[in-house]
Design a protein around this nucleic acid. Structure first.
Lengths: 220, 220
DNA sequence: TTCGACGTCAGGCAAATTTCCCAGGACCTC
DNA sequence: GAGGTCCTGGGAAATTTGCCTGACGTCGAA
């Protein structure tokens, strides 16, 4: 019982990129893009007024992260079907997304058709995971380093991402609408769970687990 | 003396994204996409056989980074016109790109038309920088970019390296036979000189300047 | 329905650390 | 000598850390 026509909402902070897969999806009959948003807040508003069948969203959004946006939307509509579409090839990210209520996870380096079929899958109520990610998840299950990070609660994970981005406690508190004290409590809880004792070790940990991505430049 | 028809080559490791602005650019008359590549090596090969007027490339490529690819292409054809198109809004990154020989720098969050006009500008021999980036460059110019790390005294540099290794102040003090107090004074001085306000930013700085090397191991 | 286990949020408070300024001494150079 | 930088740490205020506390909401099991 798949809908004859699937309405899709796109969430991505990069206008050009959004424009790009807007065209890509619309070229396929049966898929119509009915709304777009550039950040978490906009996504929530747009979802409420457009009620799309599927939301295709990047998780690295400015302001409150995409994981948080997923939870927010799922809270308003527990049947919302969200497909995460991101450049991050990380088991950790994917697990966090699914825990928040996502129904699919596709990387941007996948072949274009895969995004289209993933949208159809999610619209039909199926779960869609691209091969790379399912492989990464399987592999991470074998390691314990990545599994430690999966013990973080969704909020803790979001705070961690902000911290690793170099934000101060005040900035994070403002972004999430929390007390600075709460943020520093999370900060402490994160360090405890991950078994590190300083911020430096925290970043180093994030580096190893792929949460921090370094743009490498080689001086030949 | 602008070419009536601009031939463009796209380099981006994300197939869907590449497909996206492929369509975007082709929609404009006067622009034809003649080649695509997904990594640095492929870009070099494709450039040699297609000789496009303009190369639009993401710099966060797998393997040898995009900066390196720019240098390689410019070495083969000193007149190559390369437009960097990336999600990174970073002055140092842009400066690195221009130093390598890029002629333009546009972020992916720019409005779509800006990419099109930037392609035309670069094709016509002009330099194209999107407003966000030129502002970031201007701002970074004010805070003395000239290898800030060289202003560190020898001791400061040593302490910095230990810090970036995850050592505590006590460990460093013991290693150098100093008072822990002195170490924390150095710690403070280092952060002041480098213009960062937290340890997280400090590690991120070390990362960018190559002081911290991520040991990445291939797991297949 | 009641229970307990979590997750979220935030206040309190002592201890520790950071921040910022300062100063003495060693070692250069002019 | 005078003037510069570097190394070294003290002092005091400001802030963070570490760990506790409790309230509230949800969810699944008993």
């Amino acid at each position: 019982m798949r809908p004859r026509n699937i309405s899709v909402m796109l969430v991505d902070d990069h206008a050009v990129v959004r424009e790009g897969y807007h065209r890509l999806l619309e070229k396929h009959e049966g898929i119509t893009v009915v709304a777009e948003a550039a950040d978490a807040a906009g996504a929530y508003q747009a979802y409420k007024s457009n009620n799309p069948d599927v939301v295709v969203m990047d998780v690295s959004l400015p302001g409150r992260g995409g994981i948080d946006a997923i939870r927010q939307i799922r809270q308003w509509d527990p049947n919302a079907r969200l497909l995460v579409f991101t450049m991050h090839l990380s088991a950790t990210f994917a697990l966090q997304a699914f825990r928040a209520g996502a129904k699919g996870f596709v990387t941007k380096s996948s072949p274009p058709e895969l995004l289209v079929s993933a949208v159809c899958d999610v619209a039909a109520g199926r779960v869609a995971i691209c091969p790379e990610v399912s492989e990464a998840i399987a592999r991470s299950r074998l390691q314990e380093d990545a599994s430690v990070i999966d013990t973080l609660s969704p909020r803790e994970f979001e705070v961690l991402r902000m911290l690793l981005d170099g934000r101060t406690a005040e900035e994070i508190a403002a972004a999430f609408n929390l007390s600075p004290k709460t943020v520093s409590n999370y900060h402490y809880a994160i360090k405890s769970k991950l078994g590190v004792s300083s911020d430096v070790e925290l970043v180093l940990f994030g580096l190893r687990s792929g949460l921090v991505t370094l743009v490498e430049e080689r001086k030949h």
